[in-house]
Computed example of a mutant assay.
Amino acid sequence: MIQSMTGFGKHVVQLPSKKITIELKSLNSKNLDINARLPQFYREKELELRKMIADVLVRGKVDFGLYVEITGEETTAEVNQGVVRKYMKQLANIAEGDNLKLLELALRLPDTMKTEKGDIDQTEYDAIKTAMKEALSEISIFRNEEGQVLEEDFNERLKKLNDLLEQVKTMDPERLDTVRERLEKAVADLKVELDENRFEQELIYYLEKYDITEEKVRLANHLNYFGTTLKSNDSNGKKLGFIAQEIGREINTIGSKANYAPMQQLVVQMKDELEKIKEQMLNVL
């Protein structure tokens, strides 16, 4: 079963004095690219949290946010009183004003707040890891649901490609007869005497250059392999991409060898269906 790289997961955990929110968003990418946003206080745990994400999401452009809202009286930030008083004294020397306005201006200046760096409480961090697991579970469910939609679309495109291939197979004998007649008529119009045996040999050689038997067999095999890979337990986006490239090569070769307008029209339709598959393939894990 395939999985999309597009997803969203969110989980909120309420602690006695804090509300912690874990949010994950992912889009398609060739590799795993994690953009993490979390408060400075939790930076020491960033690598461990990144590993939790990498183990589950594997690939994609992931935005990870850890947001903390203080709901109780607990806070690690304090006013740097010495710095604020110095600012207020300097401001008072520059311009007159009441102390409240001077305080308001002073608090906007650098270094007026200081944060006490302490250790992360283990109970709190366990709650964060639990929230992360829940958010990862949600985004995985989202990705699976998106993957089911993609799989249905791929199966529909595969059916159309197989139907078009059957039309190509049915049309092929008529195409070769038409090409043969065209060549015979061209030679007849030259009004020159030819050795019939030699002409037949040259004609067979020429027709063999337009033979698409191998391409039809390989294309059928590639389409079958694509469908089988879709049903595998793992999401094989890169593998499916390689198979799609091989499908494209066989379609292009059939088009270049066709030399027959009705068949080339079928080839154009096949290319259109394959292009739609390739567009969606960019989003498969």
Rank of each mutant, 00 (worst) to 15 (best):
Q264P: 08
L109C: 04
I20V: 06
R108A: 14
N259T: 05
L285Y: 12
E200K: 12
P39Y: 14
E193Y: 08
L24P: 07
K276F: 15
L100E: 13
R249Q: 04
F199T: 00
N283K: 15
D172Q: 10
K25H: 13
K185H: 12
L136F: 06
Q122M: 05
T170F: 09
G72V: 00
R108E: 14
D172H: 11
L27P: 05
Q40S: 14
T123V: 08
Q122G: 01
L66F: 02
K159A: 14
G118P: 01
A244C: 10
Q40L: 14
A258G: 12
A36Q: 10
N162R: 12
T229Y: 08
Q122D: 09
Q81M: 04
L91R: 00
M171I: 14
L207F: 09
V84M: 07
K18P: 03
G82I: 02
E48R: 01
D126V: 00
L150K: 13
Q265M: 11
E46V: 01
I243M: 03
Q148K: 15
L38N: 02
V84K: 01
P173N: 03
Q269H: 15
K276H: 15
N233A: 15
Y210F: 10
K10R: 09
L100N: 12
L203E: 02
E138T: 00
V187K: 13
G118C: 06
L103A: 14
N221H: 12
K239G: 06
T115V: 15
S256H: 05
D55M: 02
N259A: 11
I70A: 09
E48Q: 12
N197D: 06
A186L: 11
E215M: 03
E96R: 02
T75I: 04
Y206A: 09
Q14P: 01
T71F: 07
E73S: 08
R43K: 15
L203C: 03
F8Q: 02
E134N: 08
H11K: 01
L266R: 03
I139M: 06
M171T: 13
Q40P: 07
Q40M: 12
R108G: 11
N28Y: 11
K231N: 12
Q14C: 08
N80V: 00
F8P: 04
E273L: 10
V267H: 09
N197T: 05
E275F: 15
D177E: 14
E116V: 13
D177R: 15
A95L: 12
K18A: 10
A188P: 02
Q14N: 06
S17G: 07
V217G: 07
S232C: 03
N162G: 13
G9S: 04
I22A: 09
D195R: 01
V12K: 07
E138F: 04
D119R: 12
E246C: 11
V149C: 05
I22P: 06
K133I: 00
I34K: 10
Q245M: 12
Y260H: 14
I243D: 05
E275A: 15
E134C: 01
P262S: 04
D195L: 04
D126S: 03
N197P: 02
G241H: 05
A186F: 14
V187D: 11
